[in-house]
């Protein structure tokens, strides 16, 4: 059974009447990495925030292990929230600027693991910071004092700490330069092997999605155009739009 899925999800923004998603159904299997690719405005991020429960669809249902997430209450809902974690494009924007990075990391842990003592949580934080390749001394810094690459590592640490089942990464490397992009992607790949977490990897970079994912959904104007196996993209691509994306990424031939 899929960990996370959605059925016929639509999203209409009431204020301007914009239909961002039109009857979308996707699924993410256990340990599977699923990509969503499409250009700006195609609805990728809206889908990402609805399937992770950050936003509500106007129509359709999101399922977590087969249960409608709108029916989850109390402990079950908290379990869902802990199990689905996000990494965003702008890591610093997702951190409280007044907090030290230590507090940025520890705060969500205290909420997710109320039974665990402070020292134990601090140990976990320091260990995780080491795992994402940063020195423990960085924990005393504030978000604005670190580089974009370092901030994205901290964001990844925060994502991994609650031991999630699914990680939704929304354009998580698109504002980083190539060498730092490579470091962050390698880090995510290792985390995936180590934890077995599923990924929903949202990006406009087709080659990166193909590198990172098992399957990819191609989106255009709020619809899924097609779903392809990343190992056989060229052979399977049927729609003109996907062919155009492939051509943009790899040139004609």
């Amino acid at each position: 059974m899929s960990v996370l899925s959605c059925m016929n999800v639509s999203k209409l923004f009431q204020d301007n009447g914009f239909e961002a998603l039109r009857s979308i159904s996707i699924s993410i299997g256990e340990g599977e990495s699923v990509g969503i690719v499409g250009e700006s405005g195609s609805g990728k991020s809206t889908l990402g925030s609805i399937i992770g429960g950050l936003d509500k669809p106007t129509d359709g249902t999101v399922f977590y292990h087969g249960t409608d997430i709108s029916s989850l209450k109390g402990g079950a809902f908290r379990q869902f929230r802990r199990s689905v974690q996000y990494i965003f494009q702008d890591p610093k924007g997702a951190m409280n600027p007044y907090f030290t990075l230590r507090r940025v990391l520890i705060e969500p842990l205290r909420i997710n693991f109320p039974g665990i003592g402070k020292t134990e949580l601090e140990n976990r934080v320091e260990e995780m910071v080491g795992k994402v390749g940063l020195p423990a001394s960085i924990l005393d810094a504030h978000p604005y004092e670190v580089s974009g690459g370092e901030a994205q590592r901290i964001a990844i640490a925060r994502t991994l700490l609650p031991e999630p089942e699914v990680i939704i990464a929304d354009e998580c490397v698109s504002s980083l330069d190539l060498s730092i992009q490579a470091e962050v992607i390698n880090l995510l790949r290792h985390a995936r092997t180590e934890t077995g977490a599923s990924f929903l990897f949202i990006s406009h970079d087709l080659d990166l999605v193909r590198y990172f994912c098992d399957r990819v959904y191609v989106m255009l104007h709020g619809r899924i155009v097609e779903c392809l196996d990343c190992r056989h993209m060229e052979e399977e691509a049927a729609s003109e739009y996907t062919k155009m994306l492939l051509e943009d990424a790899y040139g004609k031939d």
């Binding site: 060498s179 490579a182 080659d207 193909r210 590198y211 790899y250």
Partner: peptide, 12 residues
């Protein structure tokens, strides 16, 4: 041009 799925990306 194309990233090789079997390996980590080259880092600087």
């Amino acid at each position: 041009k194309t990233r090789d799925r079997a390996h980590d990306l080259p880092e600087l």
